[in-house]
Simulated assay, not measured.
Amino acid sequence: MKVTVFGATGQIGRLVVGDLLADDHDVTAYVRNPGKLGHSDPHLVTVTGELSDEARIQQAVRGSDAVISALGPLLRRGSTGTPVTDGTQNIVAAMQTEHVERYIGLATPSVPDERDSPTLKAKVLPVVAGLLFPNALNELVGMTTAVTQSDLDWTIARITRPTSGRPKGTVRAGFLGRDKVGSVMSRADIAAFLVAQLTDETFSRAAPAISN
Rank of each mutant, 00 (worst) to 15 (best):
M1N: 12
A8D: 04
T9K: 02
I12W: 07
G13H: 03
L15V: 05
L20Q: 01
L20F: 00
D26L: 07
T28D: 05
A29G: 05
Y30P: 05
R32Q: 11
G38L: 07
S40A: 14
S40N: 15
G49N: 00
L51T: 07
S52R: 12
I57L: 10
I57S: 04
Q59H: 07
A60I: 01
A60E: 00
G63E: 11
S64Q: 15
I68E: 02
A70W: 00
P73I: 07
L75T: 06
R76D: 13
G78S: 08
T85V: 07
D86T: 15
G87W: 05
G87Q: 02
T88L: 01
T97S: 10
T97L: 05
Y103V: 06
I104G: 04
G105P: 00
L106G: 03
P109K: 08
P109T: 15
S110P: 06
D113K: 03
R115F: 10
P118Y: 12
T119F: 09
T119C: 06
K123W: 14
V124T: 14
V124Q: 09
V127S: 07
V128C: 10
A129V: 04
L132Y: 08
P134Q: 11
N138Y: 06
N138F: 09
N138E: 13
V141S: 10
V141I: 15
M143W: 07
T144A: 10
A146H: 03
V147E: 01
S150L: 02
W154F: 14
T155C: 12
R161V: 13
P162Y: 10
R166A: 14
P167C: 03
T170M: 03
R178D: 09
V181H: 05
S183D: 15
A192P: 12
F193W: 12
L194M: 11
F203V: 02
R205W: 08
P208R: 04
A209P: 01
